[in-house]
């Protein structure tokens, strides 16, 4: 059954509709007109070693993700691994070896801003976060010898008994 709405009732709801609309617009546009205090924005920890960045600071603030993207493609796909600095010197196109060698703290340099802006790049799923300090103190580098020894044992165990595993060879693939 269709209920008939009296014609005049729409007129009575007009102020209510406009009030609701105004509230919605206010709430919707809040992020645009509310003033952001400067102290709200995280200050990038400029705990740097070097003097100069790979590109002008203003460009890097806005476009570092684009630069990293370009670097990634040129290193992996074109094998072009070096970036020419404004002063003519060469640096490796590397987030871990170049960027974080200078801006030594990943927590302060990357994460503070990214968590503020709610950006979640997945660089670190694969790339290894360098420990604070120079290249020589990168994480795990002291343990390489020990690591090699352990690996050697495992590999010997896996690769040596080929004669024993002869029976199972016929089943396997390559």
């Amino acid at each position: 059954m269709i209920r008939k709405v009296p014609r005049g009732s729409m007129m009575n709801e007009k102020p209510l509709i406009f009030a609701g609309l105004a509230v919605f617009l206010l709430a919707f546009s809040y992020p645009f007109w509310q003033s952001t205090e400067d102290e709200d924005i995280p200050q990038i920890a400029m705990q740097t070693k070097g003097e100069e960045c790979v590109a002008p600071v203003e460009y890097m603030r806005k476009n570092h993700m684009k630069l990293l993207d370009i670097w990634r493609d040129s290193v992996v796909r074109d094998g072009d691994r070096f970036h020419i600095m404004p002063d003519g010197s060469k640096v490796e196109k590397s987030l871990t070896k170049t960027c974080l060698d200078c801006h030594i703290s990943k927590e302060k340099f990357c994460e503070e801003c990214h968590s503020f802006a709610s950006v979640k790049p997945y660089c670190w799923e694969c790339h290894v976060v360098p420990k604070i300090g120079s290249h020589t103190e990168l994480s795990g580098i002291d343990d390489v010898e020990e690591n090699k020894q352990n690996l050697l044992k495992n590999l010997l165990a896996r690769n040596k008994p080929l004669a024993e595993s002869k029976q199972s060879l016929n089943k396997g693939g390559q």
């Binding site: 871990t96 694969c126 360098p130 795990g140 580098i141 343990d143 390489v144």
Partner: peptide, 12 residues
């Protein structure tokens, strides 16, 4: 990976 070599990335 027992001890990660930091110069090369791992995989996902």
């Amino acid at each position: 990976i027992e001890n990660i070599t930091p110069e090369y990335p791992t995989r996902e």
